[in-house]
Design a protein around this nucleic acid. Sequence first.
DNA 1: GGTCGTCATAAGCGAACGGTTAAGAGGTGT
DNA 2: ACACCTCTTAACCGTTCGCTTATGACGACC
Lengths: 308, 308
Amino acid sequence: MTLSQLRTFALVVRLGSLRAAAAELGVSEPAVSAAVAALRSELGDPLFVRAGGGIAFTPGGRRLAVHAEEIVGLADQARREVAETVTATRSLRVAATADFGEHAAGALLDAFTRRLPDCEVDLVVLEGADLADALARRVADVALGPRPAAGDSLDAVPFLRYQRVLVADSPRAEPLRQVWLTGPAGLEELSEEGRWLAGLPTWPDLVRFPTETEAIDATRAGDGVMLALGHVVRADLRLGTLVRLPLPGTPVQGLWYATVLGRGRASAAARALQEFVTTPGATAAMLAPPGATPSTPRRPPVHVALWS
Amino acid sequence: MTLSQLRTFALVVRLGSLRAAAAELGVSEPAVSAAVAALRSELGDPLFVRAGGGIAFTPGGRRLAVHAEEIVGLADQARREVAETVTATRSLRVAATADFGEHAAGALLDAFTRRLPDCEVDLVVLEGADLADALARRVADVALGPRPAAGDSLDAVPFLRYQRVLVADSPRAEPLRQVWLTGPAGLEELSEEGRWLAGLPTWPDLVRFPTETEAIDATRAGDGVMLALGHVVRADLRLGTLVRLPLPGTPVQGLWYATVLGRGRASAAARALQEFVTTPGATAAMLAPPGATPSTPRRPPVHVALWS
DNA sequence: GGTCGTCATAAGCGAACGGTTAAGAGGTGT
DNA sequence: ACACCTCTTAACCGTTCGCTTATGACGACC
């Protein structure tokens, strides 16, 4: 049993296919097959059987899978922690959904790093469904966005109430007959607006933009309607460049959560951020209009990455 | 970073010496040195430095140590769990201190396996200070005995009140001038009687016997005094073959705890035993005189092992 | 009954793992 | 200064790991 064998097997379980795992790892198919075969013979369990076009895991395979993820996650964390003691820096990896990442994460993490200057923060933007996954796989230390569904071993605290209002360039727009402009993630299924949308009689056509800001620009130009964050379009509504459409159910109230691994598995820095997000200073930073806080951009300690 | 490298390093940390770890593993000293050197170069941290006659660990080394134990423990557990699904048996490894193991564990586990017949129980007897260690290293699933000191990530529930009375063959015995006869572990430091003994003005000489039963036999023969379990010597006291000595502080009241790993890391079988021990049936089994419960000894599912 | 997609096996190869013996380096203790 | 204990390095070797390409086996699908 090797760490790399466990890592390979965990990926096979995650993707449900040797072929896909091989592609993901950038190696040939027999390489993956051999790694799993080694585990098979060592553990005396087939781990999975061929079923139909793909594979079906045995009970032993499923049990091994959860431990394999845990083991490789711990090994990676050990590597990181030792590296942190060497460089004398703390690192914090934050995952956020696209909407939160675009409108609030920057200001929030900026304020946080002013509080803890020795902490290097990385931000990865991914979809809401993957937030819990990223935590479990220890790809991220903190997840910011809708409350993850699999909350048994996660510690989620709400920290910001937001509302999405339906806006258009003119009050004569007909919401259910026009395209809905959205950010890159469409409408997150796990979020309140996603659940609200699922309850509508008709499912509108969505048009995705690389950012919600661009979607707002297009809405202003009359290209469609948009379920925009209230505090982001407040200025537009005041100026009249955008108007609210009074669809029942709007404004949709939602909550953003800061989630960390439960059961004492969260790092100190992760808990520090989770506590920080509920402070008044953090709320003020997130709701402030862009540019209001002249952050000293000497050496931006927040790195941002976008995952496909 | 290899599982065997981590296992080796964890042992080095535990023993505080490469030489000792090599002896324990039955390999040469350079083998251990090379394993650790591989970790060193890969992680970019010396992990430890030579200090005086031995070694002193760096902060990175200490951090790696705790994760290394966790990782190899998880790997072993994964192996076991897969093996259990193959053989369709659940196994439960119980650790107990010598006193509890001798007088109560047999009847308790006998009753438990009658309740869960598909569960194979192994009992290892070790000293109280190692109980928490055995849990953390996942050598045992449940620990029965005094409450472990390092209780931060352990879940300990008290389940049996016991008392130790000072007995001798004659009321003229002078406790502080005679040898104290004990079981194999002496007097556990972590237990109530250990703490009580530490508070005495003079520390009596202890004579250890392979079992407490043999110590009782010797006490009956007048070889010394003994701090015996109340319910074990009840018959002797009634018959007059042993008498109580009224030393202040006696009888010493103590509690036995059933401890499992906290934070959701305990197995289902471990929690089942932890719950079972608090039931009236379990208490009755433990306090019943030996031979009172005619356990059907068809195929004794409880294995007992003694660790030096 | 082909054909395709997917996993398994075979043969081979370089690199790393894990072990040995032998000798060196660095400290303690007398 | 000396012996002594402990960790480290060097040189060497067999096994395993992890990867490749090529080919086979098995089931689904048309």
